[in-house]
């Protein structure tokens, strides 16, 4: 048990515990915030801070092994797909015509009307 080991142990402790705290805060936000558009942001706390901190902590615990490689692959995957899924949920809600409530004194931007049917880009077209 030399100084480097102690340092790594303490570091991974700190990362995992703070990651746990952020995970709880994120889901608390998902529960407490007033409406759907605000809750999106609560979920993204779990998805960014919680995931990054916990995966780092576990990587340090695992050391230089194949486990670390798998953890990094999981981390990269969550890092890319998490925002994409959140964007998909928000975009689906917007496309159905639901607008977020605005704070006082602010007017929200209105999305451009959907482009007329674009044959080679079916996912971008209108709903009807």
């Amino acid at each position: 048990m030399n100084a480097v080991d102690v340092f790594l142990e303490v570091l991974s402790w700190a990362l995992i515990v703070s990651g746990s705290v952020f995970v709880i805060i994120g889901s608390l936000g998902l529960w407490r915030l007033p409406d759907f558009w605000a809750r999106l942001h609560g979920a993204s706390v779990t998805e960014s801070a919680g995931v990054i901190l916990l995966i780092w902590g576990m990587c340090i615990q695992a050391g230089f092994t194949l486990i670390t490689v798998k953890l990094i692959i999981i981390g990269i995957f969550l890092f890319i797909t998490g925002p994409t899924a959140t964007h998909a949920v928000a975009n689906a809600a917007l496309v159905t015509g639901w607008r977020p409530s605005e704070a006082e004194g602010l007017t929200g931007a209105e999305p451009e009307p959907l482009r007329p049917e674009n044959e080679d880009d079916a996912l971008d077209g209108g709903e009807e």
Partner: peptide, 26 residues
Amino acid sequence: PTLYDRVLAVNSFGTLTVLFIGVLGF
């Protein structure tokens, strides 16, 4: 109360499950 809240919750639950399975492995 809306469908999108539920989809968001399912997605978030999935992320938590991934982390939980990893932690459980350790």
